[in-house]
């Protein structure tokens, strides 16, 4: 187990390093790094001073060392726009994004799995076909357009829910959360549904395919032959066995939800770090872009690592085959 863990952590570090190199090349190599890293309104003396401070007169490999050293100490530069460390600004926005992603994940699982199992049990029925048709729609509607439709219907035409913003928040354990007040919750519903729909379609298809497979297994036939109630067969025998692939996907999709939140946050003006990224790209606030990227890479790699380790704890075959390979 320890060998596996060390190997897997090593791979993750390599992935983070590879992304750091790419970010470094992207920001420092394409175009003049002075233009990229220094406020365009700076004076000549400022530019010289900053060039020296950032070590931009040194050879490239040394510069990379400095970039990496600073990054490890949590220094990813100072935002041009806010005049504060870029990482602090991102971290302030992180809870809003995580809340959105987690609520969306919950929605997609809580709705996706029952629908998928239902469609898998009766693949030829009208309900089953409708669910599958709906999931094709969920796949096909681009995230941003689907969000706009939600706003058009529920905010503009019906006027039930607000079109954007976060609304009132309450503090729980030092974090600002929305879902405890009605105002916050009403702001949260549309963005969460928007972010959830794509993943929901994915989970529906996965759950359906697996249910169909599991239904043909001998142990399900045996459970039925034994006279167990259909309810028990579905809830215990089928559900348990489809959960293995579903759980893996859920873990991996959490990372991609953080990335897809960029779109949802922009459409709904949700004050998370994805919206901050788009604002920073438009304002050319590059230190914030770099900080966002490095943090997101860390989150995604971290989640992948966690899922793999949990999975290998549950299923020893993976651990063994990885060690051989």
């Amino acid at each position: 187990m320890i060998v596996y863990l060390v190997r897997r952590v090593g791979q993750s570090l390599l992935a983070v390093m590879a992304m750091a190199v790419l970010v470094f090349i992207g920001v420092y190599f394409i175009g003049n790094p002075v233009d990229v890293l220094i406020n365009p309104e700076a004076t000549q003396a400022d530019i010289l001073a900053t060039t020296e401070r950032l070590g931009l007169d040194k050879p490239l490999w040394q510069q990379f060392g400095i970039f990496l050293g600073n990054a490890l100490q949590g220094d990813l530069g100072t935002s041009f726009v806010y005049g504060r460390p870029a990482l602090d600004i991102i971290l302030e926005r992180l809870p809003a994004t995580m809340e959105l992603a987690l609520v969306a994940l919950f929605l997609s699982v809580a709705i996706g799995i029952p629908l998928g199992v239902w469609a898998g049990l009766r693949p030829e029925s009208i309900a089953g076909r409708t669910i599958m048709g709906g999931s094709i729609l969920g796949f096909s509607l681009p995230n941003f357009w689907q969000g706009m439709l939600l706003i058009l219907v529920f905010a503009v035409l019906l006027g039930w829910l607000p079109a954007g913003g976060r609304g009132a928040t309450t503090e729980v354990l030092g974090l600002q959360v929305s879902f405890l007040t009605w105002d916050g919750l009403s702001h949260l519903i549309l963005p969460a549904v928007n972010l959830a729909l794509f993943k929901m379609s994915l989970i529906i298809r996965l759950a359906r395919a697996n249910t169909r497979e599991v239904c043909l297994q001998d142990y399900v036939k045996f459970a039925r032959a034994k006279g167990l109630s259909p309810r028990r067969v579905v809830l215990v025998h089928i559900l348990k066995n489809i959960m293995i692939p579903v759980v893996t996907i859920i873990g991996l999709e959490l990372g991609s939800m953080v990335a897809f939140a960029i779109v949802t946050e922009t459409v709904f003006a949700w004050p998370g770090m994805g919206k901050l990224l788009i604002d920073s790209i438009n304002l050319l606030d590059r230190p914030v872009i770099v900080a966002y990227l490095m943090l997101t890479v860390l989150i995604i790699v971290g989640i992948n690592l966690l899922v793999d380790v949990i999975y290998s704890l549950l299923d020893p075959r993976i651990r063994l085959s990885e060690m051989k390979g």
Binding site: A15, G26, S256, A259, F260, T296, I300
Partner: peptide, 19 residues
Amino acid sequence: DLQLSFPAILIALILLALL
């Protein structure tokens, strides 16, 4: 595998932010 472990939209967005 390294590339596929990151969401496509994130990679594309960063590339275009730089380019």
